[in-house]
């Protein structure tokens, strides 16, 4: 008698998940302004990116990759990119992800380190959990380009 109940619970959760996944998949292709606003618009994103850069500098797993980088330009580009990805009115003018990472041999360890620092920077700026997850969801498709896979 208990097994059918559990299957029902599992099915409900799974189907609910699929519907939501489909819903947000739609968001990804036509970015909603809600995420951009939850990140604090361009000014909020600029602060998050600034905090991210401080975390990167202190992170021995990845800071070597940023040696010699024009920090101001990098800050502007990444802010524009996250603004654009989150549905804001910005245009990313930097190089493509595959091109800019082609010679860097980024490892999983380094990719995880950057993801961790981005999440910590968003947390430090009070970005709601759902908005953090939605931004990460939109960045994850860049994984194969950044890892040069």
């Amino acid at each position: 008698m208990k097994l059918p109940v559990l299957i029902l619970v599992l099915a409900t959760l799974t189907l609910g998940g699929c519907q939501s996944i489909g819903g947000h998949g739609g968001d990804s292709t036509s970015p909603s302004p809600a995420l951009y606003e939850q990140l604090g618009k361009r000014a909020g994103i600029a602060t998050i990116v600034e905090d991210l850069l401080y975390l990167i500098v202190d992170d021995t797993r990845i800071n070597e990759h940023f040696a010699g980088v024009d920090v101001e330009q990098f800050h502007t580009n990444l802010t524009d990119q996250l603004c654009s990805v989150s549905g804001g009115p910005c245009t990313y003018t930097g190089r493509g992800m595959r091109e800019s990472h082609a010679d860097m041999n980024i490892t999983d360890t380094e990719f995880n380190a950057l993801a961790e620092n981005l999440i910590l920077a968003m947390e430090a700026n009070g970005v709601p959990v759902a908005a953090q997850n939605r931004l990460i969801e939109r960045l994850v498709p860049m994984y194969p380009d950044i890892r040069n896979l």
């Binding site: 959760l13 799974t14 609910g16 998940g17 996944i21 947000h24 759902a130 969801e137």
Partner: peptide, 13 residues
């Protein structure tokens, strides 16, 4: 893991 799957929360299957 499905990011932002239910009410913006991540779902692990």
């Amino acid at each position: 893991l499905f990011f932002a799957a239910i009410a913006g929360r991540n779902l692990l299957v």
